[in-house]
Simulated assay, not measured.
Amino acid sequence: MNFTKTTEQSSKYEHLEKMSVSELLHNINNEDKTVPLAVEKALPQIEALVTKIVEKMKLGGRIFYIGAGTSGRLGIVDASECPPTFGVPFDLVNGIIAGGDTAIRRAVENAEDNTTQAWIDLQEQNIGVNDVVIGIAASGTTPYVLGGLTKCNENNILTGCITCNEGSPLALLANLPIVVVVGPEFVTGSSRMKAGTAQKLVLNMISTATMIQLGKVKGNKMVDMQLSNDKLVDRGVKMIMSEIPVSYEKASELLQEFGSVRKAVDSYNSI
């Protein structure tokens, strides 16, 4: 298959080793500024995927991100932040990386080249027709991801993807592709840079918009967040104070009693 892999094209900048620190930082920043504009062009694709995810999750479905290397790690980051932010179960949004948990910190040799392992990994999570599998690969050619999505398609499981190459095998394979074309990287081929930033922005959009649609945010506040440290407890108390006319001390008591901002406010309002 012939397509232009823009993520691998030569950097617009030459002789990086001769640049001063200031030049390096300004040039990297100038490249980074282009990423949100590239994401903006993909908003209709993101909307289409989020709309279907919400439908599936209302039927009891889950999200699975699959990827290798940086892409896999970004999926794991997004998945791991959903329970503390939105108070959802840990198995509602899942990140799976080629090579398993070892690969989160250290590259696992040839893990991304295995075309059958992703489906094995998904089956271990009892993947089903109400779930959504999103393949993440800047290149759009990662065998681990392509193999996983191919099997999902064969088993009537909805597939999406986040890639940075138009016309890539992954973009053509996913039911609902998201393609964010960021162009060549500052350091040629280093897709952890602009491509990684684009993937992170899109992941933020997918999980946040989905959770809001599922009622996990009230007004503009994380009313179901887990109160896992003093900072978040203080934030929760202040959220309660903004919703009902009580003192800091009373709000703190309500939060301690009911365990969440939503339950504390609902309890007070039901009196």
Rank of each mutant, 00 (worst) to 15 (best):
P89E: 14
S252A: 12
V182K: 00
P184S: 14
A198I: 00
A42N: 15
S20P: 08
V93A: 09
Q125G: 02
P143V: 15
I240S: 01
V261M: 03
R235M: 04
T4A: 10
M205W: 09
G69Q: 10
T116P: 00
K238F: 01
K18M: 14
A195Q: 00
L203T: 11
E257R: 07
E81K: 08
Y65K: 02
D234W: 00
L201K: 03
A118Q: 06
I53F: 10
V39C: 12
K52D: 07
K33S: 09
E47T: 13
L173F: 08
D234C: 02
K216Q: 13
G167K: 08
T141E: 09
S80H: 09
T116W: 00
S267E: 15
A103D: 01
N126T: 11
T34L: 14
P89A: 11
P245I: 15
F64H: 10
I244S: 07
P184K: 02
N269S: 14
P169L: 13
V77D: 04
G196T: 11
K221L: 14
V35L: 05
G167I: 15
E55H: 14
L122P: 02
S190Y: 02
L16P: 11
E243G: 12
I104W: 06
Q256C: 07
C161S: 13
L74W: 01
G219L: 06
V180Q: 05
D113H: 11
S10L: 11
R262I: 13
D78K: 09
N126P: 01
D78Y: 06
T102D: 13
S207D: 15
M57A: 14
V88A: 06
